[in-house]
Design a protein around this nucleic acid. Structure first.
Length: 488
RNA sequence: GGCCCCAUCGUCUAGCGGUUAGGACGCUGCCUUCUCAAGGCAGAGAUCGCGGGUUCGAACCCCGCUGGGGUCACCA
């Protein structure tokens, strides 16, 4: 059997960008080894369950260009892949553990547990743990409680005298003393498994033999190993990944400094392939100087040995933006435009005005190098489509005086007015205008900047004659005239 | 606090006993120029957290310290 990896998200909210990184690594490993990548939904927490989150999460994963070989929507030999549909299985295995003495019923109330923890803390115990009270309940008392319908959970019975160790493929050999491991609840009183029971049972049943996850799971790995041993199952290979953090922060990634939801990056106009490229370098590198990686190339070059051992990796939004700019520039004009349109309609970003294809592709060619995300397109190009109120102060500022600005505009107006349509193109306009300003003794900067503000309302735009060419004679003249009339 | 993990430019990192410690993002300057980008070139930026060892020689190996992080639920 080849490598089988999985990602097991919980539908408790929006899908986190950090989870997408973890998923990407799992996906790459399975694909590289010719194995399968599985998606499993761990919806065992009914308190935090969010309606519709499962569907949304699968949609984002697909939108990022990742597909699973087995899981919801596609099925597979180990279906169902949604834990809430596998409740009987967990119960069965939990019972099996009770029978073999590896687990036991616990009837303790939340109140007792709370006070127990409180007392342990007061007594200065280094960590709080369940006191195994119910482990010592006589058999008939347990039966009596069960018959009486008392609420119960099933706990793992951890022996205190063992060393639990394993070889993490990223971190190396790790050992935990079992005395520090709590008698973890396996089956909750609502009949749902806890994460620990759920993952182990499902990973085994689904033949998952590689587990890659964030280091936040490292402390619970001994619990899982104990479970594998109790069942007599073969352990998967573990690899724990560094966590993500915000730049300038020491804690793990949070919402405070920007989006962390995978779908929000799509909404902002980042390309999935740029996002994926950025994500793959968060804790991994090929050891070469290659920076631009497609998903396929990543799958080919990925190796667990090259995963970074560090604890926290900065989610550098500047670098993400750079990646996105790179990808935008690599797109052909046609592709870019198609994707821009798709983005506008999918994310409800359409402007009020109409954007004709042929014209817009020309407009787009002027700003392609200036965009970092799709969302930049509209503010960068709106003057091509709609008129604006000319900012007089800005206009005057380019030449220093109102009369000077007016004179410059007057000159351009008279010059451009006489042009025939055949000559209305960037190169000709450029040469012509340069000639006239040198005749008149205007400085290039003051004259072209004045013209720029008059025709675009802005000071930072693509080359002015490219703009004027696209705007056309009529519109250009009317804008110049309009600006001129604002001046004394 | 207990347990576990981690530690190279501001950031992501290369390095796996002998290197001018390399690259990328960001930053600065220059080139181009009608502005802003893009692009090209150049530059600043790391006494490899600290202290001990081992060794002819340590960013690389060992120990200690310090710092950071994760985790201690009927949440995952």
């Amino acid at each position: 059997m080849g490598v089988r990896t999985r990602m097991a998200p919980s539908p408790t909210g929006e899908y986190h960008i950090g989870s997408m990184r973890t998923m990407l690594y799992n996906y790459a490993l399975a694909k590289k080894e010719g194995g399968q990548f599985i998606l499993r939904i761990e919806d065992t927490d009914r308190e935090r369950f969010v309606e519709g989150a499962t569907e949304r999460l699968m949609d984002v994963i697909n939108a990022y260009g990742l597909n699973w070989d087995e899981g919801p929507r596609v099925g597979g030999p180990h279906a169902p892949y949604i834990q809430s549909e596998r409740l009987e299985t967990y119960k069965e295995y939990a019972n099996q553990l009770v029978e073999s003495g590896h687990a036991y019923y616990c009837f303790c109330s939340k109140e007792r547990l709370d006070t127990l923890r409180e007392e342990q803390r007061k007594a200065g115990m280094p960590s709080t743990k369940y006191d195994k009270y119910c482990l010592n309940l006589p058999k008939d008392k347990v039966k009596e409680n069960l018959d009486a319908g008392l609420s119960y959970v099933i706990r793992l019975n951890v022996q205190a005298d063992q060393e639990i160790s394993f070889d993490d493929k990223v971190l190396g050999h790790i050992t935990f003393p079992s005395k520090d491991v709590d008698d973890q609840v396996l089956l909750k009183s609502d009949g749902f498994p806890t994460y620990h029971l759920g993952v182990v049972v499902d990973d085994h049943l689904m033949e998952v033999n590689w587990v890659m996850r964030g280091v936040e799971w490292l402390p619970s790995t001994p619990k899982h190993i104990l479970l594998y041993k109790a069942f007599g199952w073969e352990l998967p290979t573990y690899a724990h990944l560094p966590l993500l953090k915000e730049k300038g922060d020491t804690k793990k990634l949070s919402k405070r400094m920007g989006s962390v939801a995978a779908h929000e990056f799509l909404l902002d106009g980042y390309l999935p392939e740029a996002l994926i490229n950025f994500l793959m370098f968060l804790g991994w590198n090929p050891g070469t100087e290659k920076e631009i990686y497609s998903l396929d190339e990543f799958v080919k070059d990925f190796s667990v040995e090259r995963i970074q051992k560090t604890d926290l990796v900065v989610f550098d939004r500047d670098k993400l933006a750079w990646y996105n700019g790179q990808y935008i520039r690599m797109l052909s004009a046609q592709d870019l435009w198609e994707r821009l349109k798709k983005w506008m309609s999918e994310y409800d970003q359409q402007p009020e005005y109409k954007m004709e294809d042929t014209y817009s592709i020309k407009v787009q060619s002027l700003v392609q190098d200036r965009m970092r995300v799709f969302a930049d397109f509209l503010p960068l190009t709106n003057y091509f489509y709609i008129d604006f109120d000319c900012p007089v102060e800005l206009l005057v500022a380019q030449s220093g005086s109102e009369s000077r600005a007016k004179e410059i505009l007057e000159t351009f107006y008279n010059l451009l007015k006489e042009l025939s349509v055949e000559n209305w193109h960037s190169k000709f306009l450029d040469e012509l205008c340069h000639r006239i300003i040198s005749e008149k003794g205007y400085k290039p900067k003051e004259s072209f900047m004045t013209l720029r503000v008059a025709s675009t309302g802005q000071t930072a735009t693509p080359p002015i004659f490219d703009i004027i060419e696209l705007l056309g004679q009529e519109k250009t003249l009317s804008r110049i005239e309009n600006a001129k009339n604002l001046l004394k």
